[in-house]
């Protein structure tokens, strides 16, 4: 295909669209799919605010710059320093750990809540709205809120010493990570619940009616009808969780500042630390670029492995 494109003379009089997809063009144009012009505004914004900065970050990762004056070329210096940096390696593990914790904790919670919220019980709507509230708050507000609630001397730990001990939640690695995982769970479970609620609602009732006639109980219905039918939503939700987990930042910034020491310094925070606290924008850019590449690869792998890319319909077994 690529050879065809390059070999095609520009003055051949073919329309842009047909040059790109010579074989499929007639059928597509008859269907009347909107042209590229429709995507232009979005593409323009995306280029201006995503592609251009991304390219600039890539260039900056080979430079040394402290925010003042003009940047200097330093070759691969930033990258080799990063490679030898133990904090960087640690931050990668911490990022993966927090992401994994997010997926493991939030998925079962939001499936259960979502399936429950998809039902037609009494008071369901009211409770669903209440569950939804954390999602309406900004991540910053949520983090500030929990930072105050978990203050060792003036928050909950001060009155619940039987549970929190000395209340040093932000001063030890295990508890600091626990707090981070808990706060993101509190904030993002409603969103994933919403995904599962929608998906569970779209499962045809006939499946349940048939199962009931066959004598399947509630648990069997859940494990043999609901869960399989939610498979595609699960993948969607997990990809969102993974990408969200890899790019978590403000929660760490406000709750722990990467501390104690570097014990909760995840990669995104380390990038900020390098760039905006140490004013080493070169190293910061290198971390940023590495994060983009890693997040893209992981998402692609998840999509491939899960068969999400070949997905056709979620109505398996209906026809």
């Amino acid at each position: 295909m690529t050879t065809k494109i390059t070999s095609a003379p520009p003055a051949a009089g073919l329309r842009k669209e047909s040059r790109r997809r010579p074989a499929a063009s007639p059928s597509i144009s008859t269907v009347g799919r909107p042209g590229f012009a429709w995507a232009l505004p979005a593409a323009l914004f995306f280029t201006l605010f995503a592609i251009v900065p991304l390219v600039m970050v890539a260039v900056l990762s080979f430079m040394s710059w402290n925010g003042l004056g003009s940047p200097q070329w330093v070759g691969t210096d930033n990258w080799s320093r990063l490679w030898d940096d133990p904090v960087m390696l640690k931050s990668v593990w911490l990022t993966l750990l927090l992401t994994a914790l997010g997926v493991v904790i939030q998925t079962p919670l939001s499936i259960l809540l979502g399936v429950w919220a998809a039902g037609y019980q009494r008071n369901r709507a009211v409770l669903s709205v209440i569950y939804f509230i954390p999602l309406l708050l900004s991540a910053t507000a949520v983090s500030v809120l929990w930072r105050a609630l978990l203050d060792p001397n003036f928050g909950i730990p001060a009155d619940a010493t039987w549970l929190f001990g000395d209340g040093n939640l932000f001063g030890e690695q295990a508890t600091a990570i626990g707090v981070l995982a808990f706060v993101s769970t509190w904030q993002f479970t409603p969103f994933h619940t919403l995904i599962y609620q929608g998906a569970a609602r779209s499962i045809p009732q006939v499946l349940y009616q048939a199962a009931e006639i066959d004598g399947a109980g509630r648990y069997r219905q859940f494990f043999h009808i609901t869960l399989p039918q939610l498979r595609n939503s699960m993948i969607t939700s997990m990809i969102l969780m993974i990408v969200g987990g890899l790019t978590t930042f403000e929660t760490v910034l406000i709750l722990t500042q990467g501390g104690p020491g570097t014990d909760t310094t995840i990669s995104a925070y380390y990038m900020y630390d390098k760039a905006f606290k140490g004013f080493d924008f070169g190293a910061g850019s290198a971390i940023a670029l590495a994060l983009v590449v890693a997040a893209t690869i992981i998402s692609l792998v998840v999509v491939k492995v899960s068969g999400y890319d070949k997905m056709r319909s979620s109505m398996e077994g209906v026809s």
Binding site: D151, N153, G171
Partner: peptide
């Protein structure tokens, strides 16, 4: 004490 790393001056914690 033990929880000094969870306390801040800038949010008025240690001051209080």
């Amino acid at each position: 004490g033990k929880n000094y790393d969870s306390v801040k001056y800038t949010n008025g914690g240690s001051v209080a």
